[in-house]
Write a protein that binds this DNA or RNA. Sequence first.
DNA 1: CCGAGTCGTGAGATTGAGTCTCATGTGTGC
DNA 2: GCACACATGAGACTCAATCTCACGACTCGG
Lengths: 146, 146
Amino acid sequence: MTDPVPIVTALDRAGYRLTEPRRALAVLIAEQDGHFTAAALVSSAQARQLGVGRATVFRTLDTLEEIGAIERLDLPSGEHAYVACELAHHHHIVCSRCGRTVEIDDAGLRPVVREVARQTGFRVEDHRLELFGLCPACQDGRAASA
Amino acid sequence: MTDPVPIVTALDRAGYRLTEPRRALAVLIAEQDGHFTAAALVSSAQARQLGVGRATVFRTLDTLEEIGAIERLDLPSGEHAYVACELAHHHHIVCSRCGRTVEIDDAGLRPVVREVARQTGFRVEDHRLELFGLCPACQDGRAASA
DNA sequence: CCGAGTCGTGAGATTGAGTCTCATGTGTGC
DNA sequence: GCACACATGAGACTCAATCTCACGACTCGG
């Protein structure tokens, strides 16, 4: 994702105002290759003198998550990160070296969930699958620009 | 799990000292039915006048996670919680009403992971699957003692 | 049984992410 | 344009988690 337009469009369609800070954040988010943290956005915004406050960054992230334009990840380190993503239900695989994030589809997970429901008697309402590993580039020993 | 002995034994085998605070925390953890937070342990310890400090709770949780006696979960709310658990690789399903946590085995996840690796070219090193839903008791409308 | 060394502990200070408040600014519909 | 509601920013605030360091307790050797 290098195009902020889908994010802006999604905001518009959901009935949110298209304000300057939101557009600026959409650009910043669109520039991120893999996942990014709220703190990183805050400091990028400060570094570029965008005049966007902490509160606005967090509020906008909440809003974007609500409309499904980004999704929250929990990294193994315990950090909270976000990824810009498509709207359909899917999961992520995160490169543990360079941080690149790739979306994956359900990839046969549904039968697994059904089987778990059968075994445990739970009615499964939601699930999250997160995979961590090395992306092809990092496997080749070419350290990516972390 | 209602027996603190496995936790204590695991600590001993890993070469850690069997101190009073650690035994006390093992008992508290063993009493938890589902997941629990660090904050909950801290306040339980205070409530029972165990004289166990915050720092010790966090240190002990880190240690127990390292030896695999407990595992960390990230709840959808963003909270960090822990579950006492067996040592083999497995996942968890969490009741979103009463908080009860049940361990599940890999349940056919391995082929899914292989498929994702094939599609993306990643070398998958680790994965986490978390399921959220209603446990059988809560489905029956009997609100559990949250 | 005792003494010494080391590992573990507690209290409190500190950090840092995230939230809240409220006066001010800005989009949007009319 | 105007007016009004929504959105914003600065900074105070909260709360989880970490760090520090002097003190305490477990273990092992004698």
